[in-house]
Design a protein around this nucleic acid. Structure first.
Lengths: 152, 152
DNA sequence: ACGCAAGTGTAGACAGTGGCAACATACCAC
DNA sequence: GTGGTATGTTGCCACTGTCTACACTTGCGT
């Protein structure tokens, strides 16, 4: 089920995903999904959860510039999934990702948030076609900012 | 019409906006909107366009830290509108906003993109409740990064 | 072996939606 | 006046999310 819905989401777009169509693709009746997911939202929630785990996996073990580039690359590879992940508040994400990007600035919380913001904003703007998404540009943008020594 | 739809979008959320409900609120029949907008997408497009103009207006004349904070504040004040603006590719935006944030780094294009990414990412993560949105935190995050002198 | 409960799938029905076609009305140029 | 254009209206269709009611399978207690 998640499989069919996951495929649909990337081809038809996030708004184009209908529970019925996903059921059709999965070869079951239009109501079968409701045995496993309370409603459409819960289905999307399942897809989002799957996405969080995959992103975490993709970032595991990386650091510095590689980390940022991997984040952007994940967004480019699974754009709809990436958007979906952030369309509903999820408590665990701040801990997971902000922490991943911290460690280089003066105040770890603030520095992590800043680095995450930079990378996340770049990913969003690329997905929305507001900025080019080639590897070289990504690397140059990520390299254009650095942590302030100590501002406050 | 745009007025009714604009109000709806902020109260009911972006997905909760139906052409019919907007027409109802505007006191007209369910099909009247289609005289002015080709389809639902076009209506959203109109709202987005309106938003771009308002954001531009909100940023006019500002620079530096004030600029970034105003960007974030706009997103916080009109969250749904802000999200909508970036949900469809719009050619003019890169020119408008990337340029607004440039001017301090070595390569103006890259520096503008980087600053825009930082501010935009912060705005998105705050809207998605992944980061706190109080003024002090915003100021500290924006202050935590600076342009690299010259990296490449 | 039997029955029964839970898990899973099915079909049918309902209101709400986007969008189309056909019809009505107002206004404005000539 | 007549014609044309802009606007609004009703009726209709396919589709969607979701509810209810009905089947089938499976495992477990007796």
């Amino acid at each position: 089920m998640l499989e069919a819905a996951g495929a649909l989401i990337e081809t038809e777009g996030l708004a184009g995903l209908s529970v019925r169509e996903a059921a059709r693709r999965a070869g079951v009746s239009h109501n079968a999904p409701y045995r496993h997911f309370a409603d459409r939202e819960a289905l999307l929630e399942g897809l989002a959860q799957e996405g969080v785990e995959r992103l975490e996996q993709a970032l595991a073990g990386l650091s510095g510039g590689e980390l940022g580039r991997a984040y952007v690359r994940f967004a480019q590879t699974h754009p709809q999934r990436f958007r979906l992940m952030f369309k509903r508040r999820r408590e665990a994400m701040q801990e997971r990702f902000a922490r991943a990007f911290a460690g280089l600035g003066a105040d770890a919380n603030v520095a992590g948030a800043a680095a995450w913001s930079l990378v996340h904003g770049l990913a969003c703007l690329i997905l929305d076609r507001q900025l080019p998404g080639d590897d070289e540009f990504v690397a140059r943008v990520l390299g254009a900012m650095r942590f302030a020594q100590r501002s406050a």
